[in-house]
Amino acid sequence: MANWLDVASTLGIMAVAVALLMIGGHFDLSAGVMTGTTALTVGVVAVELGQNIWVAIAAALVLALAIGFLNGWLVTRTGLPSFIITLGTFLMLQGLNLGLTKLFTGTVQVRGLADVPGYHSAELVLASTISVFGQPFRIAIVWWLLLTAVASWVLLRTRFGNWVFATGGDEVASRNVGVPARRTTIALFMTTAGAAWLVGSITAVRLTSVQANTGTGQELIYIVAAVIGGCLLTGGFGSAVGAALGALIFGMTQQGIVYLNWDADWFYFFLGAMLLLAVLTNQLVRRYAEAARR
């Protein structure tokens, strides 16, 4: 059980943040590669520049928030689909990850994080294992549950949450009644980047070495998890708990196929089928809500 929860936890952290962004009406294709960018930043600043790991983690946070801000700013400024804007940042980051890693280390990975100052405290917070009823659990699961709870509360019980639903539902209409739609969108992109930072730091500290291609290709998995959890692709509807459950289902399927000794190639078939089923169900929800127009 600890195993599939572990898969679900890092995916879940991202899925929850991506769900908020999708409810707000946007996609972030750079979310996956950003976990790599932040992990590599932690590695390079700590190992290659010889800083305390906490300094490296802080530097990675600043970088992540800046990228998130840039994504949000470009999307709100140009009015172009976030799909295209973040596809651009995705490709740019992918190139930077590889190019800068090679520049600093001469190889395609950063290693030796276990020996930098402050590693043990960082490991305790981000990558330790706790035992519950004799079962080992990664601490990332705690982060995941915490984030899901906070995201849920923000979404359903704060003004900002109301603005997220409104911006995703109808941006022009919400701006007309005084919702700061631009700021909301930028904040959502920064939240996604912040989640990528958390996952990147967890990955870096847990593995103590980071590959330059870390996280690439994960961005679609986050979106799939959020959609399985009930997020509409068109925005304006969804939940944080749903996205967390989507990640859980994903983790269970991935591990379940291994335990059943099935060919792992089938995994993507099931994933696709689940996605399709989820999208059709979500469509019904939308129809219900918009059926009685007049």
Binding site: N162, W163, F165, A166, G169, D170, A173, S174, V177, G178, V179, L232, G236, F237, R286, A289, E290
Partner: peptide, 13 residues
């Protein structure tokens, strides 16, 4: 916003 509850819409913004 069609998908939002009446009370959420009422106080939107």
């Amino acid at each position: 916003i069609p998908l939002m509850a009446i009370w959420r819409n009422f106080f939107l913004g």
